[in-house]
Write a protein that binds this DNA or RNA. Structure first.
Lengths: 385, 385
DNA sequence: TTAGTAAGGAAGGTCTACTAACAAACGTGA
DNA sequence: TCACGTTTGTTAGTAGACCTTCCTTACTAA
């Protein structure tokens, strides 16, 4: 009797799965070492071995490579007096390399900076857009990057760009209406022109990355950015969610006010009515509280908080989020709005979801997008997140 | 001048990152080969090499291992007449191994089955719970598994269990109120007792896995299960989302009807009012349409669809989902309800989100949970998804 | 026949991380 | 003070994993 083997085909959505070569494993372990040095500061090889689970021999080998490449430096003997042979410390040369970061969030100007690997800004540029769009805007960006590269006091690891709109994993701006960019291969074009690695991502996603790496965000978090519009970046298991068409986080145009609501749905720039942006964007919030006394303003902000809470409740439940970070004007967000949003989410979800969730302000300042853009480079070039 | 290196510490939520050894890479590539054979059916070694990107030499080596282990069989020469030496086919021995799958979704009985690797049921068992809870229920489950193991006509790869409640990644049932299980290490206990690998996951999540592997679900999808209650499983980049406290997908108790709604919020078993379960569970839907004529029933189902659409819109926007699959009674779900839900999501989201999203019925039948439990084993033991 | 093509295997090389063993440098306690 | 244990980092050897190169086999096409 012959056995029928695999006679039945099983359909499934095809997924690109990649082979893993020894060198990939090596690269991963190298990133582990770098990541430890980045997050924990100077350490001995033995410390790194304990932290990563690799043997001291392997760590020594990897560290040797990193020293040869110049990314890591030998710092001499640790002074601390413990038993045994004193450790020699090695540390990442965070001050001897820089990253160029650009923030394109603002419709009126481009912000650029040269930053060290610790996130300190060493040079800053600001260029008015003056209404430029499409290729003209892209050319202006190229010039800005060239300028920043020239201003860099140390070797540049790469360029990170926080762009509005939908950006795919290869750094192609799929659509950014405010810049007139559609299908623009921004990363590839800039890398070609400038000869430096370039990473591009959506500005809200970038902010989420920044909060995760520098701001202590949990690995199941949403970072909600409130500015001219409203955007979000989602972290699931510490990785950014990109979504079917790289549009994950585009939460600004979800309807939150409709005809059955107690308030009137306002027209939105997208052509529909009652979008989250019509109540939660910074201009919308300012309009809402304009001319009101403190008490009335607080009530107005709380009402927006409740709308936000209603919108967040299904997302928090579906993903079992640990926290939602609000990034934007604290005088508008960090008060009745935040508190009402949190209370509303907790009212509208089961305890295991609501009690685990916190809504707090993001920790990074106005440079959050720049910082996130820098993290894009750290992550893309060094594997450090 | 000395360079200050890594002097500044950067806080971050700690994340367990693991080293990668060559053997892990090997295991990954082995799963790649098995996955190709599982999804594409019998192939030549050269086919596998082209599909995986590995060289023919490496594939031959891996296939040799798999044949030695008995998971793969040599099928002889392919008859097809092309130029060159004819290929010898190899295939996964999907009929020569079985999986034990158990579905604990139902409050009244436990369902068990022995299934081949292609998902065909070769034996079936059903055990009434008769109100048993806690350890008694766990003992009954152990007996059921033993019975199924005895009924297996071929070597058993492992046991997969779809449990209600919150289940962590190690197969510990954190809380399943209906079974009286709290912090029960179900997978470990059964594996110990029965001497077979055991994998446990939440039933809705399990269903999502099943739909992904056997049902052709996209890799950015939500599978919404409508039965006694409402649950969901979320796939992001083809991986199951577990969430902060392994409670991802617990969407049944999100408030969808409140005092400002046009209809009255109904009390829910969770103690609150207006939860999604109070309108969307199978009993709730049946109550809603009971005694109504066709037209009125359709309108009633559509109204629930709109409530579902309002709830899904923020989730679909945040994650940019490709599809939402409805798993449950088609006579209730697949009609006005589904259509109203889809229309509502599209009304309430921006085009890039709404137009990309489809809401359709799940393709697996009433054995969806069992099938998903089997996939748990395939995934856990063979790395095949 | 002869040439060309494709499959599969054998040999040998490189890369990776491991174990085992050791020297160096320190604290501890008799 | 000095032997001893501890910790660090290195050297040497080993096993695993995949690669490239070359060969044989077996078929089609002209």
């Amino acid at each position: 009797m012959t056995t029928q083997v695999g006679a039945r085909r099983i359909s499934r959505a095809l997924r690109p799965t990649g082979k893993v070569l020894p060198e990939h494993a090596r690269a991963h372990n190298r990133s582990l070492v770098l990541g430890h040095l980045f997050h924990s500061g100077p350490s001995s090889r033995a410390d790194i071995a304990r932290s990563t689970g690799l043997t001291r021999v392997t760590v020594s080998d990897l560290v040797g490579d990193l020293i040869d490449e110049g990314l890591v430096a030998d710092l001499g003997v640790r002074s601390a007096g413990k038993v045994g042979k004193p450790a020699t410390l090695v540390g990442m040369r965070t001050e001897d390399f820089v990253v160029v970061a650009v923030d394109l969030t603002d419709d009126a100007r481009m912000l650029g900076a040269v930053m060290t690997l610790t996130g300190d800004v060493v040079a800053r540029r600001e260029v008015p857009l003056d209404g430029r769009r499409g290729d003209e805007a892209a050319d202006l960006l190229t010039d800005l990057c060239r300028d920043l590269l020239a201003a860099a006091p140390a070797p540049v690891l790469g360029i990170g760009i926080a762009s509005p709109g939908v950006v795919d994993a290869d750094g192609v701006v799929v659509e950014a209406p405010n810049r007139g960019w559609y299908g623009l291969p921004l990363a590839a074009r800039l890398a070609q022109t400038l000869g430096v690695p370039v990473h591009v991502a959506n500005d809200a996603n970038t902010r989420a990355l920044g909060e995760f790496t520098y701001g202590g965000a949990q690995d199941a978090a949403m970072v909600l950015t409130v500015g001219q519009g409203v955007g979000a970046g989602l972290l699931v298991d510490g990785a950014l969610v990109r979504g079917r068409r790289w549009a994950a986080g585009e939460i600004g145009h979800v309807t939150v006010v409709d005809d059955s609501s107690s308030e009137e749905p306002l027209p939105c720039a997208c052509g529909r009515r009652g979008c989250l942006e019509t109540v939660l964007s910074a201009p919308a919030l300012r309009r809402r509280v304009a001319g009101l006394d403190r008490e009335a303003a607080d009530a107005a902000l709380a009402s927006v908080g409740r709308l936000l809470g209603v919108t967040l409740a299904p997302v928090a439940s579906a993903l079992n989020l640990a926290e939602v970070l609000l990034s934007g004007p604290p005088e508008l967000l960090d008060g009745p709005l935040r508190e009402a949003a949190l209370a509303t989410v907790r009212e509208r979800t089961m305890p295991v979801i609501g009690q685990e969730l916190d809504i707090r302000m993001a920790t990074l300042d106005e440079d959050a997008s720049l910082t996130g853009a820098a993290v894009l480079v750290l992550s893309g070039q060094l594997g450090v997140t």
